[in-house]
Each structure stands twice: as C-alpha cells, then as structure tokens.
Amino acid sequence: MTDATLDVVGIGNAIIDLLAHADDSFLTEQNLAKGAMTLVDEDTAERLYAAMGPVTRASGGSAGNTIAGLGSLGAKCGYIGKLKQDELGAAYRHDLLAAGVHFTTPMASDGPSTARCMIFVTSDAERTMNTYLGACVNLKAEDIDAEMVAAAKITYLEGYLYDEPHAKEAFHRASDIAHGAGRKVALSLSDAFCVERHRADFLDLIANRIDILFANESELLALFQTEDFDAAVERLKPMVEIAAITRSAQGSVAIRGDERVESPAARVERVVDTTGAGDLYAAGFLYGLTQDLPLAECGRIAGLAAAEVISHFGARPETPLREYAGLD
C-alpha cells in the first residue's frame, strides 16, 4: 500500500448556505417548521430568499463543513460534490480551492442550479433549514475521482446524499476504491429522518462497506428502532471498527471493539447557532484518527471543534481550530 497523500476526502451535497436571523413570527408567516430541515423546490427557494433579511453566504453542506473543519485543524483534504456552472457554483468552488482543498468534480453546464440552504436562526439558537438540492443530487459514480479517493486515509460519506440511486452507486464506487487501496471509509448518518427513509439500506451499507460511523443519539436509536441507547451501542459494535455518537449536553461516546470512551461536552459561554455542530464534531474526530491519536483525544478535539462552531453564527469555524484545540 502506498503512503496516503491526503488525510480525508469528503463526498456530499455541495450546498451554499444562506443564513439570516429571524423571529418566530417570521417562521409562522412563511409556514416554516421551526428546528426542522425541509426540502423545497426552486420556486419556494426563490420566494424564501426574497423574504430573507440581510444574508450571510457560506459554502456549506454537511461533508463540506467537515472538510472545512479538518482544514482548520491542519489536515490535507479533498472534496467531491456536484455544482452547476453558475454564480453560486463558482463561489463554492472558489471557497474550496482558497482553503487548499483538492476539488476536481466536473461542474454541470445544464440542468438544475447549484444547491442552496436557507437557514433561519432564531434567538434561542434553533436553526430552521429549507434546502433546495438542485445540482448536488446529480452526483454520479463517474464523478468519483478514483485517484483522490485512493490517496486518502479516510473517505467520508454524507448520509444526506443517499436519496438518489445514482448517488448510492457513487457511494459504493468510492468505498470499493478506498478499500481496494487499503484505506478506511466513514459514514455520517446525517439526520434521523434520513435514517428512517433508508434504514434497511443504511444497515446493509454499514455492515458491508463502512469502517467508521458517526451518528447522534436520535439517529442511532432510529437505526435500530429502540429507545435503549446502550442496547443500540451493543448492536452497533460488531458492525464497524469505530463509532462516535454525540449526545448533546451529555457529550459523546466513542467505541472500538470493547473499548468505550465517554467524552464530556466542551464548555460554551453562549450557544449562538447550532448549525454544523455534528459536522465539526466529525472533523475533530477524523483529524484525531488520521493522526493515530487515542479515542479520548479524538473525542476531546471533536468536542472543542463542535463548541467553537456553535458559539457564533454559521457552520464553519471562525477561530483556527488547531489553535482552539491547543494542537500548536
């Protein structure tokens, strides 16, 4: 096996985040389900965008946020995601390249426009997301850069992308390439509703193609259709090499065989916006794994990365995470 030249390659929905503050009355007026992620069509996306107040624009998507966090920690990364050759697509591509991320996915010249997520953040730090998936769901197996995947220690798959048959084929091709090169494959379950839609497929994917699993408690319970957290952990243990499960204020649990490490939640002065907490947790944990650090240290870095991102507006770090986690 040749030495890896990248730490992590992320594969996911390439989405531009459009963030704005809002109050509960605005959500009611627009008939938005507070705290939920709702898929919308292009007409609804245009209507909501027109109704938003001042907007903060940022390249996002779950795996994209994780890759940005890894870059802030000093990791070498690549990204695979589908964009349209339009204004938002050009902005997304620019942000990746400016951050030193390897990006080679061909941009679409026709079809749906670049995906966007309109995120309304209320004063209680809840985020209400309305997502137009657009071009990002058109990622196909032929878009997977085999050389990039083979060069990465870990290929990180975003569960949100699993809705389309051709996206599933892309996941399978990427995992086959990674394992053929002697690398590892990680999966984020992304969302409990996503788990409920794809439970059988996810169980098969995890058992046969995944080495490292990321989930929050509700996603894990949905996967095994139980309310017993410890029972779900026991069922998961033989299926993957490593699992990292977040539990909000209770911190997180990492397992590797019979090893179980519980990490407390990192202290935050004030929670401003919970967008990206799970994505940045994964970034910190993956960084630790690629540096061969103990699970406890992986959990510590992950918790700090999540704490940094929820302390401000937006889903990507404002303070360099390497400094924030005391790695320098």
Rank of each mutant, 00 (worst) to 15 (best):
T66P: 03
A315Q: 00
N31H: 08
G288L: 04
L96P: 01
T246Y: 14
N13V: 02
G257I: 13
G251F: 09
S59Q: 06
F285Q: 01
D328F: 00
L187D: 02
R267A: 10
F229T: 15
E241P: 05
E308Q: 11
L88A: 07
D328T: 02
H21R: 05
D230S: 08
E142K: 09
F171T: 04
L220E: 11
V9Q: 12
I11W: 08
V253R: 08
D41M: 08
F26C: 00
I144M: 07
H166V: 09
R322V: 04
A174F: 00
T226P: 10
K237D: 07
R247F: 03
H166L: 08
A186C: 05
I177R: 02
I154D: 09
A207N: 13
A45S: 15
P320V: 14
G299H: 01
A151C: 03
N208L: 05
T56K: 11
G60H: 01
N138Q: 14
K82S: 11
E42P: 00
A254G: 11
E29P: 00
G278R: 09
V149H: 03
L236S: 13
L221Q: 15
L213F: 04
A151I: 01
E262R: 15
R183A: 09
E29K: 14
A36S: 09
A4P: 11
G69P: 02
T290N: 04
E46C: 07
S25H: 05
Y132R: 02
A305H: 01
L6K: 14
A244N: 03
A315C: 01
D211M: 09
D230Y: 12
T226C: 12
E217F: 13
L73N: 04
K237I: 12
T122K: 01
G278V: 07
F26S: 08
N13K: 06
R199A: 10
G299K: 01
L88K: 04
F193T: 07
I310C: 00
M129L: 12
T122Q: 12
D176R: 13
D258M: 13
A306E: 03
S123E: 07
A170G: 05
G111C: 11
S109I: 13
G111V: 12
D17G: 02
F313N: 00
H21W: 01
E308T: 03
A115N: 01
A135C: 10
A315R: 02
S252C: 14
E259R: 15
A108Y: 06
K34S: 03
G61R: 07
L48Q: 04
A181V: 10
P165N: 01
R256N: 10
V261H: 08
S188T: 15
V233F: 07
A20M: 05
S252A: 15
Q291E: 03
L223P: 13
G314W: 06
K82R: 13
D145K: 00
A231M: 11
G276K: 05
D191M: 12
K84P: 00
G288I: 06
H172I: 07
M107A: 13
L289D: 01
L73G: 02
